[in-house]
Amino acid sequence: MPEPPATDEETRPLGQRLFDNVFLLLIVGIVVMAVIYTGWGLFEVTTLPPATLP
């Protein structure tokens, strides 16, 4: 019995499939910014000890 033809999903390399996944890129883009810039920055600001007055 002949094998069914490979679908577009199967023939595309993994890297291309990842790059083509727009919503994955959207989520990863938001998470990277939220963790490295926003989350880390908020942690730095909110854990800052109060300055002591002279």
Binding site: L25, V28, G29, V32, M33, I36, Y37, W40, G41, E44, V45, L48
Partner: peptide, 23 residues
């Protein structure tokens, strides 16, 4: 770009004393 370009926002906070050097 998607992964890393937005964090350049920190350029504007380079002289803010509240943020550490690593950040």
């Amino acid at each position: 770009y998607i992964l890393f370009i937005s964090m350049a926002s920190a350029h504007h906070l380079l002289v803010d004393p509240g943020m550490g050097s690593a950040w």
